[in-house]
Amino acid sequence: KMTIRVKGKELARRIAKEMKDRNLKVEIHEHGDEVILEIE
């Protein structure tokens, strides 16, 4: 399990899509400006 902190929703969406393309499970937690992606 891996956690990534990202500034900006646009970048977070791009990373999430990339991870889904690799068949990984992604959970997205938004905290205002910061987005936390949990990847399994």
Results as ranks from 00 to 15, higher is better:
Glu34Ser: 09
Lys17Arg: 11
Lys7Thr: 08
Lys1Ala: 09
Lys7Pro: 03
Lys25Leu: 09
Glu34Gly: 04
Glu10Gly: 08
Lys7Cys: 14
Arg13Ala: 13
Val26Lys: 01
Glu18Arg: 14
Ile15Phe: 06
Arg22Gly: 03
Ala16Met: 11
Leu24Lys: 04
Lys20Pro: 00
Met19Asp: 00
Met19Thr: 01
Glu34Asn: 08
Glu18Leu: 15
Glu18Tyr: 15
His29Leu: 11
Asn23Phe: 09
Gly32Trp: 05
Glu38Met: 14
His29Asp: 03
Leu11Met: 08
Ala16Thr: 04
Glu34Ala: 07
Leu11Asn: 05
Ile36Ala: 02
Gly8Ile: 07
Ala16Trp: 10
Lys20Met: 14
Leu11Arg: 08
His31Tyr: 14
Met2Val: 13
Thr3Ala: 05
Lys20Asp: 03
Asp21Ile: 11
Lys20Val: 09
His29Glu: 05
His31Pro: 02
Arg5Ser: 05
Val6Leu: 08
Glu10Tyr: 12
Leu24Asp: 00
Arg14Leu: 10
Ile39Phe: 08
Ile4Arg: 03
Asp21Asn: 13
Leu37Arg: 01
Glu27Leu: 13
Glu30Thr: 09
His31Gly: 05
Gly32Lys: 06
Leu24Pro: 00
Lys1Gly: 10
Gly32Thr: 04
Arg14Glu: 05
Ala12Lys: 01
Ile28Val: 09
Lys1Met: 09
Gly32Phe: 06
Asp21Tyr: 10
Leu37His: 00
Arg13Asp: 09
Ala12Leu: 03
Leu11Gly: 01
Val35Met: 11
Ile36Asn: 02
Glu30His: 09
Glu30Val: 12
Leu24Tyr: 14
Lys20Gln: 13
Arg5Ala: 04
Lys17Met: 10
Glu27Trp: 14
Glu10His: 10
Leu37Phe: 06
Val6Ala: 03
Gly8Arg: 07
Lys25Trp: 10
Val35Pro: 01
Ile4Cys: 13
Ile4Tyr: 06
Gly32Ala: 06
Arg5Pro: 02
Glu10Ser: 10
Leu11Glu: 08
Glu27Cys: 13
Ile28Glu: 03
Met19Trp: 09
Lys7Asp: 04
His29Asn: 05
Glu38Pro: 01
Met2Lys: 08
Asp21Trp: 10
Arg14Thr: 05
Arg14Ser: 05
Val35Ser: 05
Lys20Ser: 12
Ala16Cys: 12
Lys9Ile: 15
Glu34Tyr: 15
Met19Gly: 01
Lys9His: 10
His31Met: 13
Leu37Ile: 13
Leu11Tyr: 07
Val35Tyr: 15
Met2Arg: 12
Glu34Asp: 11
Ile4Gly: 01
Glu38Cys: 12
Asn23Tyr: 07
Glu30Ala: 08
Met2Gln: 07
Glu40Met: 13
Glu10Trp: 13
Arg13Ser: 10
Asp21Thr: 10
Glu18Val: 14
Ile39Val: 10
Leu37Thr: 00
Lys25Tyr: 09
Lys20Thr: 13
Ile15Glu: 00
Lys7Ala: 07
Asp21Pro: 02
Ile4Asp: 00
Gly32Pro: 05
Arg13Val: 10
Lys9Trp: 15
Met2Leu: 13
Ala12Glu: 00
Ile4Lys: 02
Ile28Trp: 15
Ile39Lys: 00
Asp21Phe: 10
Arg22Val: 03
Lys7Met: 10
Gly32Ile: 04
Leu24Ile: 11
Ala12Ser: 02
Val26Arg: 00
Lys17Gln: 13
Leu11Ala: 07
Arg13Met: 15
Glu18Pro: 00
Ile15Tyr: 04
Val26Ile: 06
Gly8Val: 07
Lys9Pro: 06
Thr3Pro: 01
Val35Ala: 04
Asp33Arg: 05
Ile4Pro: 00
Met2Tyr: 13
Glu38Ser: 11
Lys20Tyr: 09
Glu38Asp: 05
Arg13Phe: 13
Asp21His: 11
Lys1Asp: 02
Glu38Leu: 14
Lys20Asn: 09
Asp21Met: 13
Thr3His: 07
Glu27Thr: 15
Arg5Cys: 14
Gly8Ala: 06
Glu34Trp: 15
Ile36Met: 05
Gly8Phe: 09
Glu40Cys: 12
Thr3Lys: 10
Lys1His: 10
Glu38Lys: 10
Ile28Cys: 12
Ile39Glu: 00
His31Arg: 11
Arg14Val: 07
Lys20Phe: 09
Leu37Trp: 01
Lys17Gly: 05
Met2Phe: 13
Lys9Gly: 06
His29Pro: 00
Glu10Leu: 11
Ile36His: 05
Lys9Met: 15
Lys7Tyr: 12
Lys20Ile: 12
Ala16Pro: 00
Ala12Gln: 01
Gly8Pro: 08
Lys17Tyr: 04
Gly8Gln: 07
His31Val: 14
Arg14His: 07
Glu27Lys: 13
Glu40Pro: 04
Asn23Trp: 07
Met19Glu: 00
Thr3Glu: 05
Met19Ala: 07
Glu40Ile: 13
Ile15Leu: 12
Ile39Met: 04
Asn23His: 10
His29Lys: 11
Lys20Cys: 13
Glu38Gln: 09
Arg13Leu: 15
Ile39Thr: 02
Asn23Glu: 05
Gly32Glu: 09
Glu18Met: 15
Ile28Met: 12
Ile4Ser: 01
Lys20Leu: 13
Arg14Phe: 05
Ile15Asn: 01
Lys25Phe: 08
Ile28Phe: 08
Val6Ser: 02
Val26Cys: 02
Lys17Ser: 07
Arg5Gln: 04
Asp33Phe: 05
Ala12His: 01
His31Phe: 14
Val26Asn: 00
Leu11His: 05
His31Cys: 15
Arg13Lys: 12
Ile39Arg: 01
Ala16Gly: 03
Glu40Asp: 11
Lys7Ile: 11
Val26Gly: 01
Arg5Phe: 10
Arg22Met: 10
Lys1Leu: 08
Arg13Tyr: 15
Glu27Ser: 13
Lys9Cys: 15
Lys1Glu: 02
Ala12Val: 02
Arg22Glu: 03
Arg22Ala: 07
Ile4Met: 09
Arg13Pro: 00
Arg22Ser: 04
Glu30Leu: 11
Gly8Glu: 06
Ile4His: 02
Arg13Glu: 12
Met2Ser: 05
Ala12Cys: 04
Val6Met: 07
Leu37Lys: 01
Lys7Gln: 10
Arg22Leu: 09
Leu37Cys: 01
Val6Thr: 03
Leu37Tyr: 02
Val6Gly: 02
Ile39Tyr: 05
Asp21Val: 08
Asn23Leu: 07
Ile4Thr: 02
His29Phe: 14
Glu38Trp: 12
Ala12Tyr: 02
Thr3Arg: 13
Lys25Asn: 10
Asn23Met: 07
Arg14Gly: 03
Lys25Met: 09
Glu40His: 11
Ile28Ala: 04
Arg5Leu: 09
Gly8Met: 06
Glu40Val: 12
Ile4Ala: 01
Glu10Pro: 04
Met2Trp: 14
Gly8Thr: 13
Arg14Asn: 04
Lys17Ala: 12
Glu18Phe: 15
His29Gln: 08
Glu38Ile: 15
Ile39Trp: 09
Arg5Trp: 09
Glu30Asp: 10
His31Gln: 12
Lys20Ala: 12
Val35Cys: 08
Val6Glu: 00
Glu34Phe: 15
Lys25Arg: 12
Glu40Asn: 11
His31Asn: 13
Val35Gly: 02
Ile15Ala: 01
Val26Gln: 01
Ile36Asp: 03
Leu11Thr: 06
Ile15Cys: 12
Leu11Asp: 04
Ile28Asn: 01
Val6Pro: 00
Ile36Tyr: 11
Val35Thr: 08
Lys25His: 11
Glu38Val: 15
Val26Ala: 02
Glu27Gly: 06
Ile36Ser: 03
Lys7Trp: 11
Glu18Gly: 08
Glu34Ile: 14
Lys17Val: 05
Gly32Met: 05
Asp21Leu: 14
Arg14Pro: 00
Glu27Met: 14
Asn23Pro: 00
Glu18Ala: 15
Leu11Val: 07
Ile4Trp: 07
Glu40Trp: 15
Arg14Cys: 14
Glu10Thr: 09
Lys1Pro: 08
Leu24Asn: 03
Ile36Phe: 10
Ala16Ser: 04
Glu38Arg: 10
Lys20His: 08
Val35Leu: 09
Met2Glu: 04
Asp33Gly: 08
Ala12Met: 03
Gly32Gln: 06
Met19Arg: 02
Arg22His: 07
Arg22Pro: 01
Ala16Arg: 03
Arg14Trp: 08
Leu24Met: 11
Lys7Arg: 13
Arg22Asp: 02
Glu27His: 12
Lys1Arg: 12
Glu40Tyr: 15
Gly8Lys: 05
Glu40Ser: 15
Lys17Glu: 10
Leu24Arg: 05
Lys20Gly: 07
Ile36Trp: 14
Glu30Asn: 06
Met2Asp: 03
Asp21Gly: 11
Ile15His: 00
Met19Pro: 00
Val26Trp: 02
Ile28Pro: 01
Gly8Leu: 09
Asp33Pro: 04
